[in-house]
Design a protein around this nucleic acid. Structure first.
Length: 866
RNA sequence: GCCGGAGUGGCGGAACUGGCAGACGCGACGGACUCAAAAUCCGUUGUCCGAAAGGGCUUGUGGGUUCGAUUCCCUCCUCCGGCACCA
């Protein structure tokens, strides 16, 4: 900047450099260097960045800027996940068209991102609400329909009789009322469209092995979600019925202990086989189950309940009759919707049997021949040896599972089978603000795909739709939208009025950035060959399962469509922890805005309405808890560099972050100190020739140069290898303290060349983290061009050498002394020095040294006795 | 309930492969500068005993493995994320 001021005024300085970057299009791809794709999960454009965004995008920005300095050709785009429920709810509340509101929100958030100094190539911006984007959702739908990866099925959804519409899980409150206050939320079965993700289950599981650079916890969550388990299907005939009950079990070895079977209340057989005597009870129970929503039902830490249907099935192994029950914990759309219950060997079945006084029959006994308590006090769930199992007695569980499956297959009442936890992806939504599903229902030809040439099916204007949140799919009220003709026969037909799950948008957006303007294909194949897979993907761990699984699934589909040549979308995944903050809650009036309360002394924090003392807890920042802190306030007060450094300094990326504004001051001091050092030295060092090595350097010159290069080695490792930005910043703070010890903030005796090198290296190290200040220091010290485009420096190995080491000396594992030894000291010399230490000698006196452990470079330990 | 993760000073965190626990920062305390305040600069700061040298204790709980455990194993507790229509 012209007219240097020695006071650090970050706002003006940052605006200046942001303008320079913008003018020079500093973050466009260059077309030279190894391609490197850095991606962050794109946001829903709510209108304001929150702290979670700031953290997410700052972390991504560090990677992008660092890899650019490493010489890569970096692709770093940003876009908007604009469709979905929040925008629709806002439209209902505020009566503003999402088409109007969304671009405004986007403009505002984009301005905020620019103020943070994020290095995006804005020429590649995408927004999913634009027909230019979602037409490709529709195109993919048609392609997947052709390949039998899309189908129609029945599903159960939350239904609010008051709103007369389907509710998202989020719109159902704990007490069974809907988000708008209606009571009596229930579930109901409706048809929907689904993606056959299960066709890829085996590959989605196997390819987890390719994800070596993903966090282990994400991989295991995916593995468990896919949930492959080996077992068997067995058919239990029902007296007087043609159709048997099919169950899946992983414990076929326990089947002689099966004393009842349980169906889901929605199971198709439930209605037909219930006896007349039990009908009223069974129907009442099914109705009650429907009224508890899906989440609560599976979250059945609560109550396991069931009723007898009055019907009996036959255990095909024992040929004995067993009662058929229905229960709330068995789900229709999971497995076969029916389970065989073995109370002796399954804890849930055991509890259920006790409650309803069903027989408990042990058939597996400990392999060591030990007894089981009689009566059982809990289920014996381990593998063991079979008894009471006829021909299979004496077999181990594992052997029995094999032989019994073979037996079942021979006898044609079952076979071994694999079961998956993963279910197909239902993506129909009865909503307006989503991608219209390109299907036309013809009375004659049934569901007919919209011809590819007629895409996109464009969402009708908001003005034509009455968004009330009531009465089912909004598009179904709009004849101008749905009235059409059949593409096959031309007769009057009706469009599909449901829209797609927004997970569809985010399943492939990473590829759209490669060629955002393309109108002939979702993306350019050559560009995909160049840029994919994504090298680093940064986002929240809340997406560990669903989004990332859909993302992986879609990539494999795109591969099979011949669009990409990769199996997996992302090489390296970084999941950043959440940003939490204190939230205040009044027992009577709910959450209260945290910001004014934090400004008050603790004793005065009371509910503004009723003056009760408030409960405080650290919770995820969110609007509904009123504990969000506006990042723009932070940036306006301290500058973007300090805000960035603080979010990076407070915790390593993957850890949750408890936001406390106090710590910011320390980082603000650090940036201001660095600025003052650069400003103090600029005049004297700008032209100084740089040192070429350690020759001729002594005293403070040598000391400072060593410190700078040591810091560079540390920072390179922390940023480049370990991604621990907090410790990188700590190392730079230490260096800053060293610069102060050498009086670089005023007049120093250190040689100008050494000072200039220090400043240039500081600017380069700082460039990914605090890019504006880095540019400023770079310029002050006479760096060439932009530091954003400079190469990441390499430490001078000569400056990293050291002559002596300091080792700890332990006696019996307790630290008793400290010694200095030459770097190449032998174990004998180390031991001699250690024993010579006065305090160590005290602890060795009169004892026998039984063992000596020398850990190179760390410590020496004497094991003594006597 | 099931799946995944986390727990270290007054606070955020560090300790990379089993090797000197508490780097760096906040806060607090003391000092310099100032008429004064802010800013800045210097110092102290896990805890207990001790004048000091030094010693005891200490990484959610209880146990185990090891010369040595924040790190590995088992038990329990607490908190956080996900659970398929929030994204």
């Amino acid at each position: 900047m012209a007219e240097k001021n020695k006071t650090y005024l970050p706002q003006a300085l940052e605006e200046h450099w942001q303008a320079v970057w913008r003018e020079r299009r500093a973050f466009a791809t260059r077309g030279e260097g190894e391609p490197f794709y850095v991606l962050e999960m794109f946001p829903y454009p709510s209108g304001d960045l929150h702290m979670g965004h700031v953290r997410n995008y700052t972390i991504g920005d560090v990677f992008a800027r660092f890899q650019r300095m490493r010489g890569h050709d970096v692709l770093h785009p940003m876009g908007w996940d604009a469709l979905g429920l929040p925008a629709e709810n806002q439209a209902i509340r505020e009566k503003i068209a999402p088409q109007i509101r969304t671009p405004k929100n986007i403009a505002q958030m984009k301005a905020q991102m620019e103020k943070l100094g994020l290095a995006y190539d804005w020429a590649r911006e995408i927004a999913t609400y634009q027909p230019e984007y979602y037409r490709w959702n529709q195109w993919f739908f048609l392609k997947m329909l052709e390949r039998n990866l899309v189908y129609r099925r029945e599903t159960t959804v939350n239904w609010c009789p008051g709103c007369n519409t389907v509710l998202a899980n989020e719109q159902v409150r704990d007490d069974g009322t809907c988000w708008r206050g209606h009571a009596g939320v229930t579930t109901r079965a409706i048809p929907e469209w689904a993606f056959r993700i299960t066709a890829y289950a085996e590959e989605l599981l196997a390819d987890l092995d390719q994800l070596a650079a993903w966090p282990e916890r994400i991989v295991s969550q995916q593995r468990n979600w896919i949930g492959k388990s080996g077992g068997a299907r067995v058919r239990f005939p029902v007296a007087g019925r043609p159709e048997p009950i099919e169950v899946f079990t992983t414990r076929l070895d326990t089947i002689f202990g099966c004393t009842y079977v349980v169906l889901a209340p929605e199971h198709p057989l439930t209605a037909t086989l219930t006896s007349a005597a039990q009908r009223a009870e069974v129907e009442a129970f099914a109705e009650r189950t429907r009224k508890t929503d899906k989440i609560e039902r599976t979250a059945e830490g609560a109550v396991k309940e069931g009723v007898f249907t009055g019907a009996m099935a036959v255990n095909p192994f024992t040929r004995e009759p067993v009662p058929i029950w229905i229960a709330n914990f068995v789900l229709a759309d999971y497995g076969t919707g029916a389970v065989m219950s073995v109370p002796a060997h399954d804890q849930r079945d055991f509890e259920f049997a006790l409650k309803y006084r069903l027989p408990i029959k042990p058939v597996i006994f400990p392999a060591d021949g030990g007894p089981l308590p009689s009566p059982l006090t809990e289920a014996f769930t381990a593998d063991g040896v079979l008894r009471n199992s006829a021909a299979f007695d004496g077999l181990t569980s594992a052997a029995a599972r094999e032989q019994m499956a073979a037996h079942a297959e021979r006898e044609r009442f079952g076979q071994s089978a694999i079961s998956w936890h993963l279910r197909d992806w239902g993506f129909s939504r009865q909503r307006y603000w989503g991608t219209p599903i390109p299907i036309i229902y013809c009375p004659e030809h049934g569901p007919v795909p919209v011809p590819e040439g007629d895409l996109p099916v464009v969402l009708p204007d908001y003005a034509d739709v009455q968004l009330t949140g009531e009465g089912g799919a909004p598009l179904a009220k709009l004849p101008a939208f749905y009235a059409t003709s059949c593409p096959i026969c031309g007769k009057a037909a009706r469009r599909e009025t449901e829209t797609m799950d927004t997970f569809v948008d985010s399943a492939w957006y990473f590829a759209r950035y490669l060629s955002p303007e393309l109108t002939t294909a979702p993306f350019d194949r050559d560009a995909a060959r160049t840029w994919l897979p994504v090298d680093i993907y940064v986002g929240g761990p809340e997406h560990a399962v669903m989004h990332l699984l859909y993302f992986r699934f879609w990539t494999k589909v795109m591969r099979d469509l011949g669009l990409v040549e990769i199996d997996e979308p992302v090489v390296r995944l970084i999941t950043q922890g959440m940003v939490n903050a204190p939230a205040f809650r009044c027992p009577s009036h709910g959450y209260q805005p945290a910001a004014p309360l934090l400004a008050q002394p603790e004793s005065e924090r009371r509910c503004p309405t009723c003056q009760q003392p408030l409960q405080m807890a650290v919770e995820k920042m969110s609007k509904s808890k009123y504990n969000g802190l506006d990042p723009m306030a932070l940036i306006n007060r301290y500058g973007a560099d300090t805000a960035r450094l603080y979010t990076l300094f407070a915790a390593p990326p993957e850890k949750d972050l408890e936001w406390s504004p106090e710590g910011v001051d320390g980082v603000a001091r650090f940036t201001a100190r660095l600025f003052r050092v650069a400003a103090a030295q600029a005049e004297t060092v700008r032209q100084a020739p740089l040192p070429t090595g350690m020759q001729g350097l002594a005293g403070a010159d040598a000391e400072l140069r060593r410190a700078v290069h040591r810091t560079l080695a540390k920072v390179s490792d922390e940023i480049g290898t370990r991604n621990h930005f907090n410790t990188a910043i700590a190392a730079m703070m230490e260096l800053c303290n060293t610069l102060h010890e050498h009086k670089l903030h005023e007049t120093t005796t250190v040689a100008p060349g050494v000072v200039r090198e220090a400043l240039l290296l500081v600017a380069q190290m700082l460039a990914p983290l605090a890019p504006h200040l880095a540019e400023e220091i770079w310029e002050q010290a006479g760096g060439e061009g932009l530091v954003a485009h400079a190469r990441w420096p390499t430490p001078d190995p000569e400056a990293l050498t050291i002559a002596t080491l300091s080792l700890g000396v332990q006696v019996n594992g307790k630290l008793r002394g400290q010694i200095e030894v030459p770097i190449d000291a032998s174990d004998e010399l180390i031991a001699a020095r250690a024993q010579a230490d006065e305090n160590v000698a005290r602890f060795l006196a009169g004892k026998t040294i039984r063992k000596r452990v020398v850990v190179p470079g760390r410590l020496v330990n004497f094991v003594v006795s006597g």
